[in-house]
Amino acid sequence: MSRTTPDPAPVVLLDLGPVAQLRAGRLGRRLVQLFLGLLVYGLSLALMVEGALGVAPWDVMHLAITRYVPLTLGQVVIVASFVVLLAWIPLREKPGLGTVANAFVVGLSTDAALAVLPTPDSLTLRIAFVVLGVVLNAVATAFYIGAQLGRGPRDGLMTGLARRTGASLRLVRTSLEVSVVAAGLALGGRLGAEVGAGTVLYALAIGPLAQAFLPWALVHLPAPDPVEVGIDG
């Protein structure tokens, strides 16, 4: 008799308020996973910046803003996160500990990684930095979403707009990322180093990769009201 590999457990994210998120169980594991994911997320962004072959779409705008204000990239990421959170109010998104932690930790870890990462001196190393950055970003996304402690500011903007407009998550995500890249270019973003092959790779790969990693990172919690996973690029 042939043996078959059992299907992985379904990916079920819970629609919980901030207090219910903390009471849902397995909090120690979830907190460690959340902060590890956010730290790695910041590292992944820094790798793409140092690779200088194109950064993540939102970072095109973030880097452009740094030319006009006396702030580091990480500090701009933090400020922009809280600006995005203002849009959650009319969208009635539910924040959580992970939402606030995302706003701070990703920015701080991005700056910390940029301070210690070497600048690659060959094209091969630059490509390696960018590819590693995209893969680590997907792993980090799966980790912090799988902790089920609240969406990140930009994730919540995406899911909130999709719910309010009735548009697909794919369409809303694409529209947001095209918009922030366009804004970054309008503010002086550089083709090649900031908008380049790495940006395209990120846009094409991050959704499928994060979706693939999420079943292994998801902390299963017994609670009602599952919601659609909003990372499928």
Rank of each mutant, 00 (worst) to 15 (best):
D232M: 05
P215S: 13
V83L: 15
A142D: 04
P224K: 11
S109W: 08
P222A: 11
Q33A: 07
V12W: 07
L13G: 01
L31Q: 06
D7R: 14
T4L: 08
G54I: 03
P215V: 14
M48C: 10
T119Y: 06
D225R: 15
L97T: 12
G192C: 15
M1W: 08
A142H: 04
I65Q: 05
Q75E: 15
A101K: 02
V49N: 02
P120C: 10
G230W: 00
M61R: 10
R3C: 02
P57Y: 01
A203I: 06
L209G: 00
T110I: 06
G25F: 13
G184R: 03
P95N: 12
I65H: 09
L71Q: 09
L191S: 15
F129M: 07
D121S: 13
R164P: 04
L38E: 02
V12C: 09
P153L: 01
L43C: 03
L157T: 01
T110W: 00
T4Q: 04
V178F: 09
S175A: 14
D232Y: 03
E93T: 08
V131L: 10
I89T: 05
I78Y: 07
V12P: 06
I127A: 12
R92E: 11
S122I: 10
R190K: 13
P226F: 08
A80S: 15
R151E: 05
L47W: 02
L221D: 05
V19R: 15
G160L: 02
G98I: 10
A113V: 03
A113H: 00
L43N: 00
A103T: 08
A52D: 12
W88I: 11
A24F: 04
L221Y: 03
G188T: 10
V139S: 01
K94T: 15
R190E: 11
G74C: 06
L214D: 06
V55S: 06
R190D: 12
T199R: 01
T165V: 07
L14T: 11
A20M: 11
F104C: 08
L63S: 06
V219F: 06
T165Y: 09
R29C: 04
L161W: 03
V181S: 05
S122P: 06
E177A: 04
R126T: 07
L22F: 13
M48Q: 10
G207A: 08
A52P: 10
V11D: 12
L123E: 14
I89F: 09
A186P: 06
L16D: 08
T199Y: 01
A64W: 03
G51F: 01
